[in-house]
Design a binder for these strands. Structure first.
Length: 949
DNA sequence: GTTGTGACGTA
DNA sequence: CGTACGTCACAACC
C-alpha cells in the first residue's frame, strides 16, 4: 500500500545542489539583456533571473540544505584530455561573464554556500556534494540543465532538469531516465559517450543517437562490452563505431564526474536561511532591483531553516515528497494485458467477499450519500473534436485495472460492457471530459453516479482547480506532487508533437494509482457535503445531464463558411490598415495604435489633449468612451478629431479582424467546424463560459460586427440555423421572486415591456412615452440586477446624477417590492454568508464583512447579482436538458450547437424547421413555472445572422 | 520566460 | 463609481 519512494525511508532532510553555471546561462538567455541593466550599463538579467528561478525551486522543494557549484576559470583535467572540451561554453558573452561575480556576491549575501574547486568543474563539485548528501541520508536534489548529472541519479538523488519552460522542472528519477533513454542512470555516461554532446563540443559516433546507443548498451551490458564486441556490430553504424572507438573512450573518461573531491565542507555547513539583510539591500540597490522584488526573493531564502515543529497542522506537511499525514489509500494496480483479463478482474473482485465487505464498509456512508463505489479515470487530452486517449483505469474495492491504448476490439467490448453495467455506481472527475476521451475509442459513458469536478464546483464555485491535484489540495488538504494537468482541457500544450517525449515521468503507473485514488477520496468527501447542503439534486438533475448535452454540442461544433471568413478578414484588415495610415499621417509618426502607452504619449503629450479618466494603475485611459468624448470636444481641431476618428475606426476594425482571425485559426480542417469548449465549472454564478475559442462573445451590437455571425452556417445534411432566446429572463426572475404585483402585471400584459414600465414610472399613458423615457427606464431595469449606482446610471445615460437619482426613486416607488427583494438578497447573504439561486446553487461572499469599503461594496453588488444571474443560468440549463431530450425523443436530426447564456442555436435538418422550433421553444418556455410567463423569441435562417429576430 | 494591464467582445 | 466571462497585444520584470 505504501509506495517505495525514497522519501519514505527515513531521510534527514533535503539537500539542494545547484549547477550555478547552468542556471546562470538559462537565466541569461531567458531574459532580454536590454530590459535588465543598470543606468551605468551593467547587465543584470542573469542575476535577476538566477535569483527568481532559484527562489522558485526553493519554494517548490523546501530544501533545508543548499549549495551552489561553480566552474573556475582556467582549464581542468578534462581539457588536457580533450582540448576542445566545452569550447562552446568559453564563448559565453561578455555580458554574462561579468554577472557571474555578482551572482556569487548575491549568494554570499543571501547566506547561501557556493563552492568552486580549481582544476575541477562545477560538475565534479556537484557530484561530490550529491554523493555526500546521499551518503548522509538526505533526499538530494540536483538542479542542472546539464545531462551529465544524470549519472548521479539513484534512489536518493533526483536531478531537476528544466524543460522548455523553466517552471516545469522534470524530476529525473531512475525510472524517468530509463523511461526516456532506456538505460540506467549508471549507464547514461556510456550512452552520452557514444552519442556525443554538442553543447560541450564533444563529438560522438557519427550517425549514432540515443536509440542505437541504448540498443548496444542493453545488448552488451555497457560500454566495456560494446568495445569488447565492437567487431560483431554490423553495418555502417558498426563501422562508424570502430572508427571512433578512441574518441568514445576519451569521451567516457571526460564525462565521468568526480564524486570524492575534498571540498572542505560538510553537509552541516550547507544550511541556509539567514541572509544578511544589509548586504542584500546594498547589493540589490546597486543592481537597481526594486524594493518589491527584493522582499519577494528574500522571502524564499529566509525559509531555509524551518522550525522543528509547526504548530499549524495544515501547513506542516507541505513538503512535496513527504507522505501526508492524511494517508491516501492507493489501490492495488494491475496493468491489463488483454481483454480476457478485464472479465477475470471483474469476476475476481466481485467474487471476493472479503474485499467486497471491506469496500462496502469503508464506503458505506459515502455510498449512501451518492458517491458511488466504482471509480473511473480516463487520461488523455479531452479537446472537443481532436481529443486523444492515453489510458483508462477502473477501480473498485481497493483494486484498480489500468488499460492502455490502443484498444483492440475485444478490449473495447469488455470495457463497454463494464461501463454499461456499472455506470450507475461510478464516480468520475469530469463527465464531459470523459465523454470526449472515451469517444476517441468509440466508447460511450452513460451518466455516472457522481462527478467530483462538478461536485467541487457546486461546493465552492469560485475556487478554480485546474488539476485533479489542486482539487485534492483544496478539498482534502492532500498535497501530492502536481504534475502537468492531464485530465483538464488545458490551453497549455501548443501542439502535441513534442509534448509526448519530454513528459516528466515518475513511475506513470504510480501516478495513475494516485490520481484515481484522489478521485475516490474526493467523491467520498464531496458527496456527503452536497447531501448535507441539499445540493445533490443540482448535480444529479442539472449538472450531470447538462454535461452530456454540452458534450454533444462540443462534439458537433458549429460549421463556418471559411471562404466568407477569409473575405471578411481581408475586408476588416484593409479597413484597419486604411485607418492606421490616416492616423499615422495625422500623428506624424508611426505610433503603434495597439499600444495604450504610445497612444497616451501622442494624445496627451504630443497633441496636448486634455486627459480625464485614469486607469486603475494611474495612467490616463485611452478607452473608446474617452476617445469618443474627446472626438466631440475637439471637433474643431481638424488634426485631433481626425486622428481620434481614425483611431476609433482602427480599434473597431482591427478588433473585428482579430476576432475573425481567431475563428479561422480555430476551424477544424477535418470538418470545417469550430468545436468550442463550454466550461461548466468556471463562472461563479453558475453560467457556462466558452473557450478556445470563445463563441459567446461574437459581435452582435453593431452591423459591421454582426456580419461575422453570417459566417456561421448549417453544415452538410442540415438546412438552416434556429436561434431561440429568452426575453428579459433576469427581470422576470426578479418579478417572480419579489412578488411585485406591478412588475408581474407588466409581464402578463404582453405589452411592449419597457414602454409599459415607463408609463408606470412616469405616470404617463403608454402612447405618450418618449423614446428617451423608454430607453432610460430600460437601462434602469437592466441595471437593477447589477446593483447599479446613481453615478453609473447617470454616466451611462449621460444625464446628471441628480436626474438619475430621481429616476431611481420613481422606479422604486413604482416597484417597491423589487427594491425590498434586492435589499433582502444582500441582507440574507450577509446573515448566511452565501446567496442561493432558485435551485439551491450557492455562492459564498466572505468579503461582505470586509472592513475595506471598496471590497465590501463590490461584494454587495455581486451578492445582489449572483442569485439572479444564477437562477437564469439554472433555468437555461434545465431548458437545454429538456430541449435535447425532446429532440432525441422526437427522433429528429436537428441538434443544439451553441448556448449564449439566454440563447440556444440549433442546427436544423431539412424538413424539421417547424417541428424543431416548437420543441425547443416549448422546452425553454416550460423549463420552470414562474408567476410570469417565460417568453422565448425564435428565428430561423440560412445563417446565424439571418436567424436573428 | 512569465506576469500583469488595458482594451473590448458577449449576456 | 454595474454583474459575469475570454482573448489579444503590449510592456514590464530591472
Amino acid at each position: 500500500m505504501t509506495e517505495a519512494s525514497p522519501a519514505n525511508t527515513e531521510t534527514r532532510g533535503t539537500l539542494l545542489v545547484v549547477d550555478g553555471h547552468s542556471l546562470a546561462f538559462r537565466a541569461f538567455f531567458a531574459l532580454p539583456v536590454e530590459n535588465f541593466s543598470t543606468d551605468a550599463g551593467q547587465a543584470t538579467n542573469a542575476v535577476w533571473g538566477f535569483a527568481t528561478m532559484l527562489s522558485q525551486v526553493i519554494d517548490a522543494e523546501q530544501p533545508d540544505h543548499l549549495a551552489v557549484a561553480f566552474d573556475v576559470k582556467g582549464g581542468t583535467f578534462r581539457n588536457q584530455l580533450l582540448p576542445q572540451y566545452k569550447g562552446t561554453r568559453e564563448a559565453a558573452p561578455e555580458e554574462l561573464l561579468t554577472q557571474l561575480p555578482l551572482i556569487q556576491q548575491m549568494l554570499a549575501a543571501l547566506g547561501v554556500t557556493y563552492i568552486e574547486k580549481p582544476g575541477y568543474e562545477g560538475d565534479d563539485v556537484i557530484g561530490t556534494l550529491a554523493t555526500m548528501g546521499a551518503d548522509a541520508n538526505y533526499r538530494t536534489l540536483v538542479l542542472s540543465g546539464d545531462r551529465d548529472a544524470f549519472q548521479l541519479i539513484d534512489d536518493r538523488i533526483t536531478v531537476l532538469y528544466p524543460g522548455h519552460h523553466f517552471k516545469d522542472l522534470k524530476h529525473m528519477t531512475p525510472e524517468a531516465v530509463e523511461e526516456k533513454y532506456h538505460v540506467t542512470p549508471a549507464q547514461y555516461p556510456d550512452l552520452a559517450a557514444l552519442r556525443g554532446e554538442t553543447a560541450d563540443n564533444i563529438p560522438g559516433v557519427p550517425g549514432v543517437g540515443d536509440g542505437f546507443a541504448a540498443k548496444w548498451i542493453n545488448q552488451y551490458g555497457g560500454l566495456d562490452g560494446i568495445i569488447e564486441h565492437a567487431d560483431e556490430i554490423k553495418g555502417k553504424k558498426g563501422e562508424a563505431l570502430r572508427d571512433n572507438l578512441e574518441q568514445v573512450k576519451l569521451n567516457r573518461k571526460v564525462n565521468a564526474l568526480v564524486r570524492n573531491l575534498d571540498l572542505g565542507v560538510s553537509i552541516d555547513d550547507l544550511t541556509f536561511g539567514k541572509p544578511d539583510a544589509n548586504a542584500v539591500d546594498a547589493l540589490f540597490k546597486t543592481l537597481e532591483f526594486g524594493v518589491r522584488s527584493r522582499s519577494k526573493i528574500l522571502k524564499s531564502f529566509n525559509g531555509g531553516v524551518k522550525p522543528a515543529l509547526s504548530p499549524q497542522g495544515t501547513d506542516a506537511a507541505r513538503n512535496a515528497d513527504q507522505p501526508d499525514e492524511q494517508a491516501l489509500p492507493l489501490p492495488e494496480l494491475t496493468v491489463c494485458a488483454d481483454a480476457a483479463q478485464i472479465g477475470q478482474w471483474v469476476d475476481a473482485n466481485l467474487a471476493d467477499p472479503w474485499q467486497q465487505g471491506m469496500a462496502n464498509n469503508a464506503n458505506d456512508v459515502a455510498a449512501q450519500a451518492g458517491a458511488g463505489t466504482w471509480t473511473l479515470l480516463a487520461q488523455g487530452d479531452p479537446k472537443p473534436g481532436r481529443s486523444t486517449l492515453d489510458n483508462v483505469t477502473v477501480m473498485a474495492a481497493g483494486r484498480a485495472l489500468l488499460i492502455k491504448t490502443p484498444f483492440d476490439e475485444p478490449t473495447k467490448h469488455a470495457l463497454a460492457a463494464l461501463l454499461d453495467e456499472h455506470h450507475g455506481t461510478l464516480a468520475v472527475h469530469g463527465y464531459k471530459e470523459h465523454l470526449h476521451l472515451l469517444g476517441v475509442a468509440g466508447l460511450h459513458l452513460p451518466e455516472p453516479k457522481f462527478d467530483t469536478k462538478l461536485a467541487g464546483y457546486l461546493v465552492h464555485p469560485d475556487f478554480h482547480a485546474d488539476t485533479l491535484e489542486q482539487a485534492a489540495a483544496h478539498f482534502l488538504d492532500l498535497h501530492v506532487e502536481d504534475k502537468k494537468p492531464q485530465v483538464t482541457q488545458g490551453l497549455l500544450d501548443l501542439g502535441d508533437d513534442n509534448a509526448g517525449d519530454e513528459e516528466p515521468r515518475e513511475n506513470p503507473n504510480e501516478l495513475t494509482a494516485t490520481r484515481i485514488a484522489i478521485v475516490r477520496a474526493l467523491a467520498d468527501t464531496l458527496a456527503p457535503m452536497l447531501e448535507q447542503r441539499s445540493q445533490s439534486h443540482l448535480l444529479a438533475d442539472i449538472e450531470l445531464p447538462v454535461s452530456r448535452v454540452l458534450h454533444g454540442m462540443e462534439d458537433a461544433g458549429a460549421k463556418v463558411d471559411e471562404q466568407r471568413l477569409d473575405t471578411m478578414r481581408e475586408q476588416f484588415s484593409a479597413d484597419a490598415r486604411q485607418a492606421q495610415e490616416m492616423a499615422w499621417d495625422l500623428a506624424g509618426s508611426r505610433v503603434n495604435l495597439q499600444s495604450p502607452k504610445q497612444l497616451q504619449q501622442v494624445l496627451f503629450e504630443d497633441m496636448g489633449l486634455k486627459a480625464t479618466k485614469r486607469t486603475k494603475s494611474g495612467s490616463y485611459t485611452t478607452n473608446a468612451s474617452v476617445l469618443q468624448d474627446l472626438y466631440v470636444k475637439y471637433a474643431n481641431d481638424e488634426r485631433a478629431s481626425g486622428f481620434l476618428g481614425a483611431l476609433l475606426r482602427h480599434r473597431e476594425t482591427n478588433k473585428l479582424k482579430q476576432i475573425v482571425q481567431t475563428l479561422i485559426d480555430a476551424t477544424n480542417p477535418k470538418d470545417g467546424r469550430i468545436h468550442t469548449t463550454f466550461e461548466q465549472t468556471v463562472a461563479a454564478t453558475g453560467r457556462l463560459s466558452s473557450v478556445d475559442p470563445n463563441l459567446q462573445n461574437i459581435p452582435n451590437r453593431n452591423a459591421a460586427g454582426r456580419e461575422i455571425r453570417s459566417a456561421f452556417v448549417p453544415g452538410e445534411g442540415y438546412a438552416s440555423l434556429l436561434s431561440c432566446d429568452y426575453s428579459q429572463v433576469e427581470l422576470r426572475i426578479m418579478a417572480d421572486r419579489s412578488g411585485d404585483e406591478a412588475l408581474i402585471e407588466a409581464f402578463r400584459s404582453g405589452a411592449d415591456f419597457h414602454r409599459y414600465v415607463a408609463s408606470l414610472v412616469y405616470g404617463v399613458p403608454v402612447d405618450q412615452i418618449t423614446s428617451d423615457q423608454r430607453s432610460h427606464v430600460k437601462a434602469m431595469s437592466y441595471g437593477l440586477a447589477y446593483g447599479l449606482s446613481t453615478y453609473g446610471l447617470a454616466q451611462q445615460l449621460k444625464i446628471s446624477p441628480s436626474h438619475a437619482d430621481e429616476l431611481k426613486a420613481k422606479y422604486f416607488a413604482t416597484f417597491g417590492k423589487v427594491h425590498d427583494y434586492l435589499e433582502s438578497l444582500v441582507a440574507d447573504a450577509r446573515a448566511k454568508g452565501y446567496t442561493e439561486t432558485m435551485f439551491g446553487r450557492r455562492r459564498y461572499f466572505p468579503a461582505l464583512s470586509s472592513t475595506n469599503r471598496v471590497a465590501r461594496e463590490a461584494a454587495e453588488r455581486a451578492a445582489l447579482n449572483a442569485p439572479i444571474q444564477g437562477s437564469a443560468a439554472d433555468i437555461m440549463k434545465i431548458a437545454m436538458i429538456r430541449a435535447d431530450r425532446a429532440l432525441r425523443e422526437a427522433g429528429v436530426n436537428s441538434r443544439i450547437i451553441l448556448q449564449i447564456h439566454d440563447e440556444l442555436v440549433v442546427e436544423v435538418a431539412p424538413g424539421e424547421a417547424e417541428q424543431v422550433t416548437g420543441l425547443v421553444a416549448d422546452a425553454m418556455e416550460h423549463a420552470v413555472d414562474l408567476s410570469v410567463p417565460l417568453d422565448v423569441s425564435t428565428g430561423i435562417g440560412d445563417d446565424w445572422q439571418l436567424a436573428a429576430h
